[in-house]
Design a protein around this nucleic acid. Structure first.
Lengths: 167, 167
DNA sequence: GGATGTAACTTTCAAAATGAAAGTAACTAT
DNA sequence: ATAGTTACTTTCATTTTGAAAGTTACATCC
């Protein structure tokens, strides 16, 4: 009756959720990327109970997304800094911002991405890094990669591509 | 002691997590986008207990991401189809694929995105839809939008931008 | 036509996670 | 000496997750 362990799955989505799939994790990362580093800052910002915050911060440190750094020794004090891995999570966060703003915020945008150079609002989208083309349901498909395991290969056997509508 | 209700938060990330933040939801959406529609298909694919699957599917239907459609009436049978809102979640899923593949899969890619036209592997990234420029930590920042509430405005007061390192 | 099979669940109940409240430790400031 | 700050830990109730078994409504095989 343990929680299902996703760490052994080959699927990159499952692997991701294994690290940040807990209830508060993504919100903590959001705050970390907006500059918060201290226990109390997260606590106030999120309205999370301190015991929960302790657990989530420890998990994120264990997952390698945050680092616990001492910034004072006289009174021993620590802060939580994003690691490189932590920062690399940012595109997912921005994808959430885009979806939540576009699809779930009928009253308008609560936050906005702006281009540093022009200062103008930026809307984001996924593109093919090589061709520069926008990724759409029709233009791309998902196939097994070189490190696909048995289960993933089976999942795609006899199927053309991911967004198969009716077969 | 109820689970914190994120639905009233103005933050688009919190709004998103309110819909898909549950343990299995994103994995179910993954399967739905790879063509699965039936209860048993999800059950086998995920190894999820049927009672959990019932709850998650119901929640996703309630959240407007899936639709429960009857495909047979003699024996009443239903399938779960992605709605437009459900399909609009796809960029987030792809962002997870990219992160999970790039950062959490040292053994290589288990799945791969390919360009439909060329058939070649595609790597994805976030771009500014207007300028076509890749979104980086340095090139863009997050600011309050028109529908920002008090809390969000406060969060940004006295701060330049989101990825502020040290202040 | 009785037995078995299939799809889609529901029920029951134990274990684990979440959350509220209060308490603790090590200082610092007044 | 008293109060305040930061960063927690402990305790315990409520919720959620998960395993196993049972249910409903048919379809098919012999």
């Amino acid at each position: 009756m343990k929680r299902t362990d996703l760490s052994t799955w080959a699927c990159p989505i499952a692997r991701s959720l294994n690290r940040v799939g807990e209830w508060w994790s993504i919100l903590i990362l959001r705050d970390a990327m907006s500059g918060l580093t201290r226990f109390d800052e997260f606590e106030v910002s999120l309205g999370i109970a301190p015991n929960m915050l302790t657990r989530r911060l420890s998990d994120l440190v264990g997952a390698g997304l945050l680092e616990r750094v001492q910034y004072s020794s006289k009174p021993p004090r620590h802060e939580y800094m994003l690691t490189e891995l932590g920062w690399s999570f940012r595109p997912i966060l921005l994808a959430f911002v885009e979806w939540g703003s576009e699809q779930l915020s009928p009253e308008g945008r609560a936050i906005q991405l702006i281009d540093q150079a022009s200062g103008r609002p930026a809307r984001i989208g996924l593109v093919d890094l090589e061709t520069g083309q926008l990724i759409t349901r029709e233009s791309h498909s998902i196939v097994p990669g070189p490190a696909a395991d048995q289960q993933i290969r089976q999942r795609f056997a006899g199927r053309q591509s991911a967004p198969a509508g009716n077969e």
